[in-house]
């Protein structure tokens, strides 16, 4: 199966290991992986701020970049949602509406792709430690992904998964929200970190690096020891 990696801008720059791990896992599972080189940002920051003309300009670039891809696998549930759910809305009644509608069904979040498209549950990963899983809101509520990452983690040898009470509660990142309303964003993150602390897990795993940036930033500031890892980074361990 030919698969194009969609590595969002902040993953490219801050968490390249996530992309590396994704490529490893996908190649190990026999996918032919490519990385359309022109990719930059999905356009979510201006979109979420209400600047839809600007968002269309950036998103239009993505549409071109991925025009030839058959399957697009995103490292982030949120950026995947942007392409899958919001592009059709963003380009509604514009010239590019057709392209937006065409690309939407090709976009998959990583865990959902593995479980639902490749039909894999056990990727042969080994990782020792206790971990808790954070559901990124976009993945959870826009894409309906809840079971898939847990299925994959259940089959990782040596990993013990402990659910936190606030798994489905937003971490408070929310893109530009996190810097426009830092006090609220931080309070939300603190609720998340308290819930993580209750589980005594060593690792916090998610399928969204943007949430993990917020959570790790707070964990570090609060002196909590838990480390954040993207699902792909766990699945790549053998």
């Amino acid at each position: 199966m030919k698969v194009s990696l969609f590595i969002p801008c902040f993953v490219d720059q801050f968490y390249p290991q996530v992309g590396v791990s994704m490529a490893q896992v996908l190649e190990r599972l026999g996918c032919e992986v490519d990385y359309p080189p022109g990719q930059t940002c999905c356009g979510q920051p201006p979109f979420n701020s209400g600047y839809w003309n600007e968002a269309r300009a950036v998103a239009g670039h993505s549409l071109k970049t991925f025009a030839k891809s058959e399957i697009i696998v995103s490292a982030s549930g949120s950026c995947g949602t942007m392409m899958k759910v919001f592009y059709p809305e963003l380009f509604k009644d514009t010239e590019q509406e057709f392209e937006a509608r065409k690309i939407a069904p090709k976009v998959h979040e990583f865990s959902e792709f593995l479980v639902n498209i490749l039909g894999v549950r056990d990727v042969g990963a080994k990782f020792s430690g206790t971990a808790t899983f954070h559901d990124g809101c976009h993945g959870l509520r826009e894409l309906g992904i809840k079971r898939e990452p847990r299925e994959l983690l259940k089959h990782v040898r040596g990993l013990e998964l402990v659910e936190m009470a606030e798994a489905e509660t937003c971490c408070g990142f929310g893109g530009t929200f996190s810097v426009k309303f830092p006090s609220i964003s931080t309070a939300m993150g603190e609720v998340k970190c308290d819930s993580i602390a209750e589980t005594r897990a060593e690792y916090v795993i998610s399928n969204d690096s943007s949430c993990l940036m917020q959570i790790q930033g707070l964990l570090d500031r609060r002196g909590q020891k838990a480390r954040c890892l993207h699902l792909a980074e766990i699945l790549a361990q053998t």
């Binding site: 979420n48 959870l140 826009e142 929200f177």
Partner: peptide, 11 residues
């Protein structure tokens, strides 16, 4: 603007 757009409300 003061929302992370998490969608818990819609759900």
């Amino acid at each position: 603007a003061s929302s992370s757009l998490c969608g818990a409300c819609t759900e």
